[in-house]
Amino acid sequence: MPTTRLGVFELMVLMAVATAPEEADGITIRQKVAASRGRDVSSGAVHTTLDRLGHRGLVSSRQGDATPERGGRPRRFYRLTALGAKAIDINYGALQTLAGHVPQIFPQ
């Protein structure tokens, strides 16, 4: 299933959505991705990726209310879909296999 192949950045964004209590907004996701990446990330990258994940059916979203502190623009909340959860699961296997090799490179 080609749609479940995820890049590392896509995976980070997807994980950020998945680990939110219920649903997550753009700011939360951006901050989580930045935290897991260890350095700042541009909002444009996050939104482009979310857009892409949305098109692939890995996340769903709904539009929230517009607030004055956002300059009157609406907020959008993202939530993991079943397909998204499955994609994480598939990629988790691959990551685990990869992670298993790390001790060989950096032996204690």
Binding site: G26, R30, S43, H47, D51, E69, R70, R73, R76
Partner: peptide
């Protein structure tokens, strides 16, 4: 829409 959300996010964080 994507532009609005992005700009909204950034404005909120900016504030």
């Amino acid at each position: 829409e994507a532009g609005k959300e992005l700009a909204g996010d950034l404005e909120e964080e900016y504030r």
